[in-house]
Structures are given as structure tokens and as C-alpha cells.
Simulated assay, not measured.
Amino acid sequence: MRVLALGGSGGMGRATVRAALTYDFVTEIVVAGIDGELAERFVASLNDPRVRNLSLDITDSQALRQAMDSVDVVLNSTGPFFRFGVPILTAAIEAGKHYCDICDDWQPTLQMLELSEQAQRKGVKAVIGLGASPGIINLLSVKAASTLDQVDTLVSAWKLSGAINDDDGFTPPPTAGQVDAAAVHLMHCLSEKIRILHQGQFIDSKPLEHSVLDFPTLGELDVWSLGHPEAVTLVRRFPQLQNCYNGMLGIEDLVADLRAVAEAVANGQVSVDDAARQLAGDGGRAARQERLAAKDRADVPSALAYAAGYKNGQPATAGAFIGNRPSGGMATITGIPHALFLPLLHHGDIQRTGVFAPEEVIDPDRFFELFDPFCGEQGADLTVLCSAD
């Protein structure tokens, strides 16, 4: 299997490439990115003849298609996805290449799902949003919902305190004017209306709306809503859903600051990129993480799924989370699931052609079976709880 890793020298891309190299059936990985020097250094460090680097500007459509010509699978880690998701998937489908990404924006998610018929005609299998959130958390949602006889509400939530990467030795030092893609994504999510499922209908709502979940064994958890793909894709797996949204945990002390910056973007006072620079700047990021860590509940996992509905005719709730995660921070918890598309594809676990969210075509138990070896001796320690049990 020959693989093109777009953004493969970035933080999450590097985690994807390292995980992909653990599989013998992978015969070649082309690490492609606009920073050719970084890609070259990263590839050299791997000391694996199956890997080579390619300097590539993904906005050059001709060069992008040429890069796809010699591979079987495209793994796309290049964000922000509200800019790059649709054109790259479109190119992969036109080239007849299987595709997977870590798209975490809901608008391009809907646009990419509309390309499913084109992918079917080309025999392409494409999974979008196979990272941590979305990705792992979608499959946790399936596990939680499956414990109930009827599920009405699904909420996926994660800690902002966990949204940092460990330094793997290839993180470039910040430069003047540099903008962090993850921070751009966050400001984009917070400065525009978000799509959620409410009382059986999709509505466009304000971000950072507060709710409280009564999570089995953990008690009350405060959640602030965020625009994410889970809110618009889980209903495809559970069409009876009435309510579905994604949110952040443990940001009580940051909500006012986030709202203020997001409002400035929404009013045109500052660009998304400049707001991201402010959010991710040395002082801003360090101060933010310190404030989050000070209030972090140790008993609450970094990401979880909550379901509400009925079991045995009575109201019930359920929850799912993993107790262990790979070392390396946000990069590995996102990049490793991305790489798992390869064994799922190779072993025939993904049977349908078209464009899908993870929960539509991936069996959670099979996924966590593949994920466990990356999480230490005890594996991911998948936990599923139900209030009716």
C-alpha cells in the first residue's frame, strides 16, 4: 500500500506517519508539505527506506494531482479544513484514490459528505474526521448509545486543557506572523453560528452556550458548545436523535475571554488569523493552559461521550470514554486514529464506497482493538457506563 501523507511533517501528520510505519503492508509513504526542509529532516530521522519527502504546495492543483498519481491512499492532515478539506478530497476522488482526513470543521464536513456519489462512481472509500474529536469521540458515542434501547440525545465533549502537543523534536520555533492551524480552527468555530440538532431539527446556534450533563458516576459536568462535525454526522448513524452537539469541558475561567475575542472576529474588528495569533501566542497560550490546569478535574477524562434516552422503558443515561491515551499529547491522540484507516482499509473492515463519517462505516470494537497497542500495556481502557445498570 502506497500512501501520500499531506501535511505529514506537521505535528499531527508526524504522528500519523509514525503509526502508519508500524504496518508491514505499507510499502511507501510520501511525506508532503510546504516546508520542504522540515519534511526532509523528519523523513531522515525515521531511517526507513519506505519513506520519502516531497515539497508540495497543496494550493497548486496540478502538483497535488501529480503527487496523488503514484499512491493508493491519501491521508490528509492539512488544516484548517474549512479552507483545504473540500478541494483535497475532490482531487483524491477525481484521481480515484482512497482518502481519510482529520477534518474538525462542520461546514466542509457537510460539503464533503455530498461528494459521496462521486466517490462511489470512482470506487473510492473515504472517511472524514478520523482523529480524536471527531473520530474517537464519534465511536465512543456509538458505544454509549448502544447501551440504551432508545437514544434521544448525544453530546460529545473534550477538555481544552488537553489540546496541546508534546515537543517531539520537530516542532519549529514560533516565528513572527506565524499562525497555528488549531488556533485558527478554534477561533473559526467560536466566531460563527454553529449547527446543532435541537428537538429533532438542525438549527444555527451561538457557540459557547452552557449546559450541564449528569454523567454516570462522574456527576454534573459543565459543557460549553462548539461548532464541530459530531453534531451534524451522528444523526446519520442514529436517525432518531432529537438533540446532538459538541462542546468543551472545564473552561469556566476562560469563557468570558473566548467570547470577547470571538465577538471581535464576528464584528470584523480582527481577522480569524490575528485572533488565533493572540490566542496561541507564547504568553496567551501558556497563561491559558495554566488557568485550565488549575481547575482541571482529575477524575474527568480528556474526552467523553454522553447519551440520554430510555432503557427497559425507563429514562436512562450512558457514557463512554477511554482511560488511557498514547503519549505525545493532541498530536498522537489525533494522528494515530488517522493512521488506523490503513489497516481498516487493508483488512476489509471498511466495505462501502463513498464518503462517510467514522461512525457510519467503522465498528468501534474493531477500531479500539487496533488502537489499544498504542496506549501502553493496558490498552485504551475503554469504559462504558449506564445509569440503568
Rank of each mutant, 00 (worst) to 15 (best):
G7S: 08
G7D: 12
G10F: 07
G13V: 00
R14V: 02
T27D: 08
E28I: 02
D35H: 12
G36L: 04
L38D: 02
N47E: 11
R52H: 12
L54G: 02
S55D: 02
L56P: 03
T59P: 15
S61W: 10
Q62C: 01
A63H: 03
Q66G: 03
V71Q: 09
I88A: 05
A92E: 04
G96R: 15
H98G: 06
C103N: 14
C103Q: 14
D104V: 04
D104E: 09
P108T: 08
M112H: 07
E114F: 04
E114A: 15
K122H: 07
K125T: 02
K125D: 02
V127M: 09
G131D: 01
I136G: 03
L140G: 13
V142E: 05
K143F: 01
L154M: 10
S156V: 08
K159Y: 08
K159E: 00
S161G: 06
I164K: 14
I164H: 14
D168F: 04
P174A: 06
P174F: 09
G177C: 11
A181P: 15
H188T: 11
S191H: 11
E192G: 03
I196H: 15
F202Q: 13
V212K: 14
P216A: 08
P216V: 11
T217Q: 13
V223H: 09
S225V: 08
L226T: 01
L226C: 03
G227T: 07
H228L: 14
V232M: 12
V232C: 03
P239I: 00
I251D: 02
D253A: 10
D253V: 08
D257R: 08
L258K: 13
E263K: 14
E263M: 04
V265M: 01
G268N: 06
A275L: 06
A275D: 04
A280K: 11
G281S: 12
G281V: 05
G283R: 15
R288V: 05
R288Y: 05
E290F: 00
A294Q: 15
K295M: 09
D296F: 10
R297I: 02
R297A: 05
A298V: 14
A307D: 13
A308W: 03
Y310S: 07
A320D: 04
S327F: 03
P337F: 01
H338I: 00
L340G: 02
P343L: 03
H347V: 00
I350D: 04
I350L: 10
T353L: 07
G354Y: 06
P358S: 10
F368D: 07
E369F: 09
L370W: 10
P373F: 02
P373E: 06
C375D: 03
G379D: 03
L385E: 07
C386H: 12
A388Q: 15
